[in-house]
Design a protein around this nucleic acid. Structure first.
Length: 330
DNA sequence: AACCAAAGCAACCGCCCTCCA
DNA sequence: TTGGAGGGCGGTTGCTTTGGT
């Protein structure tokens, strides 16, 4: 008995995603959460395979993704993890918040492989290709800690995993949670892969992506702490876009008459999809200015006069005062 | 300016694993 | 226990961009 294809491919669109398709998918996921990818294209009005939708979301549209090149630190971490785990990109990616397995895999194939070969290292075995390279421990400036409360748990996992990986010869990631910049001994096969001038000095104001991932929409919880789930608990987020505490009658997204969630149809800030057109190819829709993007989205929906939309923005500033459900991303 | 090759990366393919009835 | 469904994962493809001539 043959295995059924993941979907009926007849009439389905393939190839690059358009802005319109992205918008539909984002709209759908934000409204309904992630659930049953096979059903997503139909429900979202997309002529795509469910698998394609999932990949597009996880690899490109997810709000907690970092964009842009891997930092030297991340690159080094990838190399070390690859030495231990091999081509298990998802495992490697799980140690790099905001990075996807696909992204890391691509980066490995296009950049790191070459870099290692240039240095006389076999990218497969991590052993010298022919003539051994003189080995020196190198120091690398560690990145700014990701210490917002909502991803504390995530961070803790990363730290634990990193420490677990810390065998005799590799990375010391202890004290990652320390807010001050430190240098740590960083010895991956003791091959210096970066020059000192290549080391980025992290900005303690925290990464934009981290900030973006921090609070997508504020919780209606009465506590002042904005909490967001970690990026790994996919099952808990399935088909849920809010926590139980969010489901209070005070929630402005809750249709009081029908007891249903009402989300606005929204337009992304800008006339066309600005997130495709950033100058640096680094700042995506979800990056630094995410909260303001959502701000615009909410305000826009609020002002378009559509009575079916249940937004009731009382205090647009600060954003934390908005009465809207917390979106759970993973 | 035009052409070509190489590089980069998003997306696809198909196998594998896990869950559940 | 078994088989189907759903999703995850790694490898590969092919389109787009970039750089060189």
């Amino acid at each position: 008995m043959g295995r059924q294809p993941c979907c009926d491919k007849v009439g389905l669109k393939k190839g690059p995603w358009t802005a319109e398709e992205d918008k539909k998918l984002i709209n759908f996921i934000l409204t309904n959460g992630q659930c049953c990818w096979r059903a997503v294209p139909k429900l979202a009005g997309l002529l795509r395979c469910g698998k394609s939708c999932r990949l597009r979301w996880t690899n490109y549209l997810r709000p907690d993704l970092k964009r842009g090149l891997l930092s030297p630190y991340e690159e080094q971490l990838v190399i070390d993890l690859h030495a231990k785990l091999g081509n298990r990109w998802s495992k490697i990616a799980s140690n790099l918040p905001g990075r996807t397995d696909n992204e890391i895999k691509n980066h490995w194939n296009t950049h790191i492989k070459k870099k290692l070969r240039k240095l006389g290292i076999d990218p497969l075995t991590h052993n010298p290709l022919s003539t051994p390279t003189p080995q020196q421990p190198q120091q690398i400036t560690k990145p700014p800690p990701i210490m917002s409360e909502e991803n504390d748990h995530d961070h803790q996992n990363i730290e634990e995993e990193a420490i677990a990986l810390e065998s005799s010869d590799t990375i010391s990631l202890k004290n990652m949670a320390t807010p001050e910049l430190e240098t740590i001994d960083f010895c991956i096969d003791d091959v210096p892969l970066i020059d000192p001038y290549e080391i980025l000095v992290p900005n303690n104001s925290s990464s934009a992506a981290t900030a973006a991932a921090t609070t997508i929409l504020p919780s209606t919880s009465t506590t002042s702490t904005a909490t967001t789930t970690t990026t790994t608990s996919s099952s808990s987020a399935c088909c849920s876009s809010s926590s139980s505490s969010d489901r209070s009658s005070k929630n402005k997204f809750l249709d009081q008459d029908h007891h249903e969630w009402q989300f606005p149809d929204f337009e992304w800030p800008g006339t066309t999809f600005d997130y495709y057109n950033d100058d640096n190819n680094n700042m995506g829709l979800w990056d630094y200015d995410l909260s303001s993007s959502w701000d615009l989205m909410i305000i826009s929906a609020d002002h378009d006069g559509d009575s079916t939309k249940k937004l009731d923005i009382v205090d647009p500033d600060p954003l934390i005062n908005y009465q809207c459900p917390r979106m759970v991303f993973d």
